[in-house]
Design a protein around this nucleic acid. Structure first.
Lengths: 191, 191
DNA sequence: CACTACATGTAACTAGTTACATGATTCG
DNA sequence: CGAATCATGTAACTAGTTACATGTAGTG
């Protein structure tokens, strides 16, 4: 149930509506944890029932309201507990590895083309992760700014560097995969 | 539905029973695609109904039988089709990244300990992937040997190198993650 | 007034998890 | 004859996917 913990982590920065969270999980948070709208709304209601967050109805015009959720004391405790303990590694389940493992069964040029597309995706992912890392280091994202308003100014650099480091890691893994895929292309074309 | 393609890829090497596949997905294949017994048996039956594999009942004593599945012509075609086309990247969903992203919310020594455990896991994963890579290069695994009996001897080295390369990649990513986690530990302890 | 953004839902489905359940055969 | 291994299943559940559905408010 990491979606719940991901939501708690975001809402800790600032209270948000389901709509806000949907946007957020479609953009930057999507690099860490992807979640569709149809999963976010029900999860928020379940979390409210569980007492982890509480929803506050705000008027947005005469007929439209939005529910802004904030993390409760209990939610903060749960997040803290979950963050502090090591968890079992997630089982491997990467369709691309299944594909690459069987590249010996198809034509070399087709496998080469599949790798080419993979390289493009990974390079794009690396570039985007690096850009986000830089924005975080510059404290130049909306969410980080709001998060820091509730933190001791002496900690601001530290918080920014910790967040940025995660995106640096995502980029590093993507770069490693690019190198690996290029090596694979050389292997396919016969050294 | 990559479990189906993973199963096709394994059964292409040699026909196997559900039991054999369960063992296999608990060991080496588990690094690529994890699947529990309760998922494998029903999936095999669905694949047989779909005509991708066909089951052959073998007697194993007076009362016990086992069903040995082999890939059909149609299954091979499906596998080939799936292997030859690029697929959309899988949505990110890594609980550990959610955890690391929020390391600024907990005590540095607790975050350090969580990273320490992560490093241990990744180093173990890297070592095991490298060991398996070496076994594949030496054509020293049961499944590869059986797979190669149906291949042109001129292709044996190529097939072994392609399979091995996937495990080299898994190891490389794990090593990258280890370096990243160590950097994270330095970050937490204040450079 | 049309278009975009805001805002929230539901239904039907596939995939994956956890736990339980049952019996046969082989080997020491 | 007891333990490990062989062999196959089911039930109840949680998570995630795809597609549909509905209406409001702000902007040009």
């Amino acid at each position: 149930m990491s979606l719940q913990h991901a939501l708690l982590g975001v809402l800790e920065a600032r209270p948000m509506s389901g709509y806000d969270l949907v946007q957020f999980f479609d953009s930057s948070a999507g690099w860490i944890w992807a979640a569709p709208q149809s999963q976010i709304y029900p999860t928020l209601r379940r979390m409210e029932r569980a007492g982890l967050i509480s929803g506050d109805d705000e008027r947005r015009g005469p007929k439209l309201t939005r529910t802004v959720y904030s993390v409760t004391e209990q939610g903060l405790e749960e997040l803290n507990r979950w963050l502090s303990a090591p968890h079992a590694p997630t089982p491997a389940r990467d369709p691309f590895l299944v594909q690459a493992l069987n590249f010996d069964m198809i034509e070399a040029d087709q496998a080469h083309a599949v790798l080419e597309q993979f390289i493009g995706e990974q390079e794009k992912a690396a570039a985007e992760a690096e850009a986000h890392r830089d924005r975080l280091l510059a404290k130049d994202t909306m969410l980080l700014k709001e998060r820091l308003t509730r933190r001791d100014p002496a900690d601001h650099d530290r918080v920014a560097r910790i967040k940025a480091h995660v995106f640096a890691g995502i980029a590093a893994v993507a770069r490693t995969r690019v190198e690996w895929a290029r090596e694979g292309q050389r292997l396919l074309t016969g050294d």
